[in-house]
Structure formats: structure tokens, C-alpha cells
Simulated scan of single mutants.
Amino acid sequence: MLTHKDHFHGSDLEKIEQIYGIRKEDIVSFSANVNPLGISPKLREHLAKHIDCITTYPDREYSSLRQCMADYVGTEKENIIVGNGSTELISLFIQIEHPKKAMILGPTYSEYEREVSLGGGTTVYYPLKEESGFKLDTTHFTSKLDDSIDLLILCNPNNPTSSCISLDDMRTILDVCKEHGIYVMVDETYIEFVEDVVHTSAVSLTAYYNNIIILRGTSKFFAAPGLRLGYAITGNEDLLRNMNQRKNPWMINSLAAIAGELMFQDDEYIQATRDLISTERARCYQTMLNSKRFHPYKPTANFMLMRIMDEDLNSGILFDRAIREGLMIRDCSTFPFLNDKYIRFCFMDPADNDRLLDCLLR
């Protein structure tokens, strides 16, 4: 058992090597929330054929890539801006909007608060309630919005709770935010894993609301975190103009641009991913639901949050037990409003999921 207070992110495999003496190649990361199918076969097969693209500068407008993205999400390419990962676009957006006070739903990803702080702003949290399965009570939530708030940040589906805001509720939130002059930033990193993407994603709302920007990436669904390819969608022409004026001339390299075009058009891979996650999500949830030692919260994304009900167990003990078998879960004690009775893991292939379930239920 660890005697020091270490918490590991899904990308911290080198630290795991040092502390536990386990080669990172031998670790199955249930913490990184990355597609277990790996990268798109179309990308793997064809990217090498485009290697000569690095001999020239990328198209400054990334027209072909943005058109592929627009076709993929169901919008116009004029509404899309690309970036070196969605984190860069978050920074760029906050630099432009410069919010003095932001509201964030918690528990959630810590980078939002950090970026607001770096921009000189302060953050307040609206806590999702555990007794409601961490699902948002839209009526109560919107009653807490007022003119003092400049920016609302929503992660949908939310990390680590795997809860989701419906399209109707998102429309209600946008209406209230419009009344108070609040801009809404929606991180849809995990939206492609939900059952009904079209009727859950807020992309369609960008045609009607000018106070929303949506962030997407390729790290999780397309299993390409090292590619650093992200994009944002908004119908606000002034915001797009400001972001384009302030961004670096070439936000992403030529290979990333080509890779994006290949991935977004690999329909077989996209469907295979959704089928796998849908099946394993239902199976893993039901398995843990049948256990008295854990309370799983119904997941909508490719990962699941669980409360540890066994008094003799905590997140540190379970992390240690799993990692010694080459299985890395997420100790959620560092998330706001959570403690050492919560863990999170993503859904991998059936065999690896079985190994983890056996380990946790032992």
C-alpha cells in the first residue's frame, strides 16, 4: 500500500513505472478514458502515404479539415476553429472573454478553474448532488445564475460523474444565461460516446444562440491524445473573428490536419467504437449494480464513477490493488466534492473489463 499521497492522471504512466516497478507497456489504463480500439484503421493505413505533407506549410485556413469536421458534427465549416488540443482553445477563449467570475459544475475536470485563474478571474462551484446520482437539477441550477457571472463552464457528459445534460435542458440553460449576459462554454470531449449523439450534443444550438462555444477533441474517442488536435464550434462570428486574429498562424501541423480528415471519415471505426462502448457500459454497470460493495452512478459516457460502500475499502487501497495487477483506475479523492470513497474507470475491451471487475469485486 502507498504510504505517500500520490494521485495519478491517466497520462502518468512514467510515475507508475518508477513507484511500482511496472513497465508502462504492461499497464492497462482504465484512467485515461481513451477508446480501447486504438487509432482509426484508416488513419493507420493511410497516414504514411501523406508523409510528404510536412515539406510544405499547412493551409492557414485548414479548409479541408474544417469541412470534414463540419460534416462530422453537423454544422458549417465557417463555425469551426481548430487548435492544438482543446486545452489551447480553452485558453484562447478565456483570454478573449476575460471572465471576472465563472461558474463551474462540480465535481469536474480541474483545468477549467486553472485557466480562469490564469486569466485573473475567480471561480464558484455549483455542486452536483450525490443523492441525485450527480444529475443536474436544471430548475434549481438556473435559479442560482445572476448578472455577477460572466462565464458558465459545462462538461457534457461530465467528468468524472459520467452524467449528461439533455438538449432540452441545455436550451433552458442558454435562455437563462442569455438573460444575464453569461457566455456558456460546453466541453463535449466525451459526447461521441453517448447513445444518441445528435439529440444530446449542443452543436445544433449554435445556429440559434450566440452565447455558446463547444469544445471537442480527438484524444478520447479517436484514441489520439498525442496528436493534439482539437476544435471548437460556435455561431458567434465576432468571437470566431477574435479567436482567429489572436491564434497562432498555424495551430496544428500538416500531419495532424491530414490525420483529422482520415479519422472523421472512418465510419466503420466510429460505429464499432459506439457499439463496443454501449455494450460494455451496460454490462459493467449492471455487474457493479449487483454488488453491495459499490454504488455505481449510471454512466452515459465511456467511463463510470462509483462510490465505495465497503467500510474496509477506500480509493487508495483499490488503486494499489489494481495497479499491482497492471490495471490503472482513477482515485477520485482529488476531485472537488468527492473523497477517498470514490473511484472511476473507463470501459476497455471485454477481457480487460473482466479482469478489472474481478479485481475490484474480490
Score class of each variant (00 low, 15 high):
residue 184 V to Q: 00
residue 239 L to V: 10
residue 162 S to Y: 03
residue 341 K to W: 02
residue 6 D to W: 11
residue 7 H to Q: 11
residue 83 G to D: 02
residue 28 V to W: 10
residue 100 K to M: 13
residue 287 T to S: 13
residue 62 Y to T: 05
residue 322 A to P: 01
residue 171 R to W: 01
residue 217 G to T: 14
residue 25 E to S: 12
residue 63 S to E: 14
residue 224 A to T: 06
residue 130 E to K: 14
residue 28 V to G: 02
residue 326 G to P: 03
residue 280 E to V: 04
residue 327 L to F: 09
residue 224 A to N: 05
residue 290 N to Q: 13
residue 201 S to E: 08
residue 145 L to K: 01
residue 150 D to H: 07
residue 303 F to T: 03
residue 222 F to I: 03
residue 7 H to S: 12
residue 169 D to H: 15
residue 265 Q to R: 13
residue 340 D to M: 00
residue 23 R to V: 10
residue 7 H to V: 12
residue 236 N to Q: 03
residue 127 P to S: 00
residue 295 H to R: 13
residue 90 I to P: 01
residue 74 G to N: 05
residue 287 T to K: 09
residue 205 L to P: 00
residue 204 S to E: 02
residue 115 E to G: 06
residue 253 N to F: 10
residue 21 G to L: 11
residue 40 S to T: 06
residue 41 P to N: 07
residue 347 F to G: 02
residue 76 E to T: 09
residue 59 D to S: 15
residue 180 H to A: 12
residue 75 T to E: 00
residue 135 K to A: 13
residue 198 V to S: 10
residue 27 I to K: 03
residue 140 H to M: 08
residue 362 R to I: 05
residue 290 N to T: 05
residue 298 K to E: 06
residue 267 D to P: 05
residue 144 K to C: 14
residue 180 H to I: 07
residue 327 L to N: 06
residue 262 L to T: 01
residue 16 I to T: 08
residue 269 Y to V: 01
residue 157 P to A: 05
residue 354 D to F: 06
residue 329 I to C: 03
residue 54 I to K: 12
residue 101 K to A: 03
residue 166 S to N: 14
residue 160 P to L: 00
residue 357 L to I: 15
residue 121 G to C: 03
residue 24 K to N: 04
residue 7 H to I: 15
residue 155 C to G: 15
